[in-house]
Amino acid sequence: MNGGTAVYSTLDVDVRAHPQRTVVTVAGDLDMDTCPHLSETLEALTLDGQALALDLRAVTFMDSSALHLLLALRNRARATGGTLELIGLPHQAQRLLDLTGTRRLFTLQPCPTL
């Protein structure tokens, strides 16, 4: 997938490919119902050592399915020589990473200012 928007029941995903990185903007709930749809979108991306940035500032909820997806995506990015950045991680999602001891595994970036 080179770019575009996919809309699922409680999840919106927008992919923008840039020369040095791909930005995936996610809005809605990331849970056991929606993660397979996001995973499908992400699997279609060619990483080839590039940075992948997930803009999660509009995510309203994350469960363990989302954590599993993020860990798998991190491993995939690293296997291709790339990186994974999580942008604007909401408080609930930060708490999930803290409770599971996985926060240190991710590069967290604040929301960009306009």
Rank of each mutant, 00 (worst) to 15 (best):
N2P: 08
G4F: 04
G4Y: 05
T5C: 01
A6R: 12
V7T: 14
Y8L: 15
S9M: 12
S9E: 15
V13M: 02
V13T: 07
D14E: 15
D14R: 12
V15W: 01
A17D: 13
H18C: 09
P19V: 05
P19R: 07
Q20V: 08
V23L: 14
V23T: 15
V24Y: 00
T25A: 12
V26E: 03
A27T: 09
A27D: 09
G28M: 13
M32F: 09
M32D: 11
M32W: 11
D33E: 11
D33W: 02
T34P: 09
T34S: 15
T34V: 08
T34K: 09
C35W: 01
C35D: 02
C35Y: 01
P36V: 07
P36W: 10
H37R: 07
L38R: 00
E40W: 05
T41W: 00
A44Y: 02
L45D: 02
L45V: 08
T46Y: 00
L47A: 02
D48W: 01
G49F: 00
Q50I: 04
L52M: 12
A53N: 01
A53M: 07
A53P: 03
D55L: 02
A58R: 15
V59R: 07
T60F: 06
T60K: 13
D63T: 12
D63N: 14
S64Y: 05
S65K: 02
L67A: 06
L67D: 07
L67T: 08
L67E: 05
L69H: 07
L71M: 13
L71S: 10
A72G: 09
L73F: 05
R76D: 04
A77G: 04
A79L: 10
T80W: 04
G81K: 11
G81Y: 04
T83N: 07
T83G: 05
L84K: 02
E85I: 08
L86N: 04
I87W: 00
L89G: 04
P90D: 14
H91F: 12
Q92A: 13
A93P: 09
Q94S: 10
R95D: 09
L96E: 03
D98Q: 12
L99T: 15
G101T: 08
T102Y: 01
R104M: 13
R104S: 14
L105K: 03
T107C: 01
L108S: 04
Q109E: 11
Q109V: 08
P110D: 15
C111R: 14
